[in-house]
Design a protein around this nucleic acid. Structure first.
Length: 462
RNA sequence: GGCUCCAUCGUCUAGCGGUCAGGAUCCCAGAUUUUCAUUCUGGUUACCGGAGUUCGAUUCUCCGUGGAGUCACCA
């Protein structure tokens, strides 16, 4: 049985890097028929935790991940932590330390001056006298004082830490009695039955401390997979200042959840040359043992490509529904299929797609100047006028092919190239030279609107 | 600064002693298209440096160099 967990601190939104570790944890648990837990690490900042949890669950919901069971809030488990701290106190594996903050600062300064590593000197470790008055003690755990602590990491391999280099009797409860991070993480992971910890490698250096807690409490140490960081363009750890780090912003920008997940799963993980992964394939193939060792830089070029790919392969029903989030309501449009088909292959995002659809549905207000100079020569007016008349004469114009026939007949009779009609017509209908096929555009807006736009263009440009 | 991790095209990556160092993206060119996009074809671009091990190193070892993370009564 595999139990994984995602344990964010309540920052108010789900971070893109957090989503990746959550995804990895989710995939590995689910692939093994296991359990994926969510825990909010709010021992210090007791505020906002409810909201933050909601934001995370909402983001999970959007991408299609779901945690199992109830959400664990550390702020509601204080009595549990207290119990285990008592246990350590009784067994002599932890002790009260009456050193004041000022004394501690002074000690650290001295050590630094001597170029020593700042660390607690253990002065209350075996203290039995009467404690000084007026000092609320912290509780420190008795950490090993020599030797080597080895972390067995599924990504990096075995990592040895010399105890003298990294450890001291660190604080597990503050003077106000509240427990500290490295203590509660270990306690909760153990109590929640977490077998496999997948987390950012910025936690690597915390791991020995947590192992001290595991051992003092007689808990079994889980498997660790420390996932390399995602860096920004400057090569530094990704932070909120690096643009879009809130997962929900990707929905706003018009990315599909499957594109985002596909993008993230390939950041730090791969399966041969495969680039496209459905959730089903991720579930079948993901293994944390295949995670890379090195950090990757966050660059959304590939995300755009993936998103375009998934949009192209998205059903029109679903697209229409998604587009409603961009204030575009197509359900009653009789040419919806033609419209969506015409636009989906040239869209990188839903926002992009919505903008292109508006350009078709709304008559142009302005005409691109360069395009006018290039395509709207004197004879163009004539061609367009004739074309408009042909539309009047024609019967039963519905499909793109109907319009195409009218266009072909005209250029054939006038003995001109397709471009002589196409270019000015494109300008008249869309105000620019790019865009979907004209036969589709006309089928979408209809013959009457086509004529109106032609007249308007002639009147406005000439 | 101490400790720890990391190092293949600009970017994401494959590689697990012998490969013309592969794929994807981006960029460029060509084909298709009335245009743009899609699609297809082709192209430019990478093993951080130095020793060692070996018949042979991108791959193993060591040393540099560079980058990152972390060093709280934060999480």
């Amino acid at each position: 049985m595999i139990v994984t967990r995602f344990a964010p601190s309540p920052t108010g939104y789900l971070h893109i890097g957090g989503l990746r570790t959550a995804l990895f944890s989710y995939l590995w648990a689910k692939r093994n028929g296991g359990t994926f837990l969510l825990r909010i690490e709010d021992t210090d900042m007791a505020r906002n935790n409810e909201e933050a949890a909601l934001a995370i669950v909402e983001a999970f919901k959007w991408v299609g991940l779901a945690h199992d069971g109830e959400i664990t809030y550390q702020s509601r488990r204080m009595d549990i932590y207290k119990e285990y701290i008592e246990k350590l106190l009784h067994s002599g594996k932890a002790y009260r330390c009456y050193m004041s903050k000022e004394e501690l600062d002074a000690l650290r300064e001295e050590q630094s001056a001597r170029k020593e590593r700042p660390r607690y000197d253990g002065r209350y470790r075996d203290f039995t006298g009467t404690p000084p008055e007026g000092v609320a003690p912290v509780i420190r755990i008795k950490a090993p004082q020599s030797g080597v602590l080895s972390v067995h990491d599924g990504v990096k391999g075995r990592i040895d830490f010399r105890v003298e280099d990294i450890l001291d009797d660190f604080i597990i409860a503050r003077s106000d009695g509240t427990p500290t991070y490295n203590f509660v993480v270990a306690v909760d992971d153990a109590l929640m039955g977490v077998t496999t910890v997948i987390r950012g490698d910025d936690h690597l250096s915390n791991t020995p401390k947590q192992m001290v807690v595991y051992e003092a409490l007689g808990f079994k140490i889980p498997e660790f997979y420390h996932v390399p960081m995602i860096h920004n363009a400057e090569g530094k750890k990704l932070s909120k200042r690096d643009g879009a780090t809130d997962v929900m912003m990707y929905r706003e920008m018009g990315y599909l959840p499957e594109a985002l997940l596909n993008f993230l799963v390939r950041l730090g993980w791969s399966h041969g040359d495969q680039e496209l992964f459905s959730m089903k394939e991720m579930l079948a193939l993901f293994n944390p043992a295949d995670i890379n060792k090195s950090a990757s830089i966050y660059n959304t070029e590939k995300l755009d490509w993936l998103n375009g790919h998934y949009i192209k392969n998205c059903s029109n029903d679903r697209l229409a529904q998604l587009l409603e989030g961009f204030e575009l309501f197509l359900s009653s449009h009789d040419k919806r299929e033609i419209l969506l088909d015409a636009v989906k292959e040239r869209s990188k995002t839903l926002a992009d797609m919505a903008a292109q659809i508006r350009e078709i549905l709304q008559a142009p207000e302005v005409y691109d100047e360069k395009a006018v100079a290039k395509a709207f020569k004197s004879e163009a007016t004539e061609v367009l006028e004739v074309f408009a008349m042909r539309l009047c004469d024609a019967r039963e114009l519905h499909l793109p092919s109907d319009y195409h026939q009218v266009m072909e007949a005209l250029v054939g009779e006038m003995g001109i190239g397709f471009g002589k009609l196409g270019q000015p017509l494109r300008l008249a209908l869309l105000g620019k030279l790019g865009g979907p096929g004209l036969d589709s555009v006309m089928a979408i807006i209809g013959a009457d609107e086509t004529r109106r736009r032609i007249e308007k263009a002639i009147a406005q440009i000439v």
